[in-house]
């Protein structure tokens, strides 16, 4: 895979929770680039800091030390409002659960970023993402009327609809069965392949990581390894060896 200009750059990120005995170093000087048009998976045992890394990089949380750049924006220099606007217009999110507002229909959830920006939705973009996730016949439904897999597809559509520079996904398949997981990961893969979308995903499932172009491994808040063109078996092997090292 050829090296391209990074969509997201993180330099020497450090994040510490709590004080005294309860002090936990979640991130310990992590430096990482996420390349444009690449599907990156972040893996690691629980407590390794993989979620914290993603939250900081995505502008949801602020690191104690270090710098993050998304495109031309230096996140540390942004005010809360600027950061909010950046999340709205230039970043897409897919969470493990509770991605949707229960009182809005699927379509309204998808166009929520436009709604928040006070802009009319970009109809071509909406049509495109709706077709990608194949939700055309479900648009008028409320989240409670959709299956878990369909709900996550709505979340994917919402994440993609603003044509963001990067999409962050935090354990997006965590509460889905394997068929729905495969389908969802397939959508993400297509976005990367067909629309050159940059995707960063946190997961603990090797099978999910296998959909990525590149897998980063985190342990105790540090980047410890990296794998390109992964398969589920290679990911699993690496994880086993890491666990041996740490234990």
């Amino acid at each position: 895979m050829p090296t391209r200009t990074p969509a997201v750059q993180a330099t020497a990120l450090t994040k510490i929770y709590g004080t005294g005995d309860a002090r936990v170093i979640a991130l310990d000087g992590v430096t990482v680039d996420f390349h444009r048009g690449q599907f990156t998976a972040i893996m690691g045992p629980s407590g390794s800091g993989k979620s914290t890394l993603m939250h900081c990089v995505a502008g949801l949380d602020r690191p104690d030390l270090g710098a993050i750049r998304i495109g031309d924006a230096e996140l540390g220099e942004l005010s809360d409002d600027q950061l909010t606007a950046l999340r709205r217009d230039r970043v897409g999110f897919i969470f493990q659960a509770f991605n949707l507002l229960p009182t809005l229909t699927a379509l309204e959830n998808i166009t929520l970023p436009f709604d928040l920006a006070g802009r009319p939705p970009d109809q071509t973009a909406v049509d495109r993402v709706v077709d990608v996730v194949r939700l055309r016949d479900r648009l008028g439904h409320r989240p409670s009327q959709l299956s878990g897999g369909q709900q996550q597809r709505v979340a994917v559509a919402r994440a993609l609809v603003t044509n963001p520079e990067v999409v962050f996904a935090d354990e997006p398949t965590g509460s889905l069965d394997s068929a729905a997981s495969t389908e969802l990961l397939g959508f993400l893969r297509r976005c990367v392949d067909e629309f050159e979308q940059t995707v960063v995903m946190v997961t603990h499932e090797p099978s999910a990581a296998a959909f990525a172009d590149r897998v980063l491994f985190l342990t105790d808040g540090r980047l410890v390894d990296e794998l390109t063109a992964p398969t589920a078996d290679r990911v699993l092997d690496l994880m086993k060896s890491l666990e041996k090292v740490t234990s």
Binding site: T84, A85, R87, F98, L112, P113, L116
Partner: peptide, 16 residues
């Protein structure tokens, strides 16, 4: 809380 947090995550300003 979670609804508001979700809105904040996907780009709602505090004032909104």
């Amino acid at each position: 809380t979670r609804q508001f947090a979700l809105l904040r995550a996907v780009g709602a300003y505090r004032r909104q």
